[in-house]
């Protein structure tokens, strides 16, 4: 594998964090959470322009917040609502 950039490492660490946090949840919910998280990471990996650092950093911050919420024992499940797809290119 090629050497990873700092940003890539952060993304992978965040993904690992989500998968670890999901282990603490009920088996049914865990499956759903893993499906949602996996879908979102893979979709963004495909759709987001790799040079769109601002947007990737925004996603990282948002992900970190969501992970923080997920880690709370009070959080038992996760839902998503479809949203219009964000711009994949940086705004001029």
């Amino acid at each position: 594998m090629k050497r990873l950039t700092g940003l890539q490492k952060q993304v992978l660490a965040l993904y690992g964090g989500f998968l670890r946090a999901a282990r603490a949840k009920a088996p049914e919910e865990r499956k759903k959470i893993e499906a949602i998280v996996s879908e979102e990471f893979h979709r963004n990996a495909k759709e987001v322009d790799r040079k769109n650092f601002i947007y990737i950093e925004y996603l990282l911050r948002r992900g970190a917040k969501q992970l923080h919420q997920l880690k709370s024992p009070n959080t038992i499940s996760m839902f998503t609502v479809p949203v219009p797809s964000p711009p994949s290119k940086p705004l001029p």
Binding site: M1, L4, Q8, K9, L12, A13, Y15, G16, L19, R20, R23, S38, F41, H42, A45
Partner: peptide, 21 residues
Amino acid sequence: SLDTVEIVMGLEEEFDINVEE
């Protein structure tokens, strides 16, 4: 690389270990 993270997480759980990032 995302799939690799999934694999490592699966291994972590199976062998009850903690792999650093």
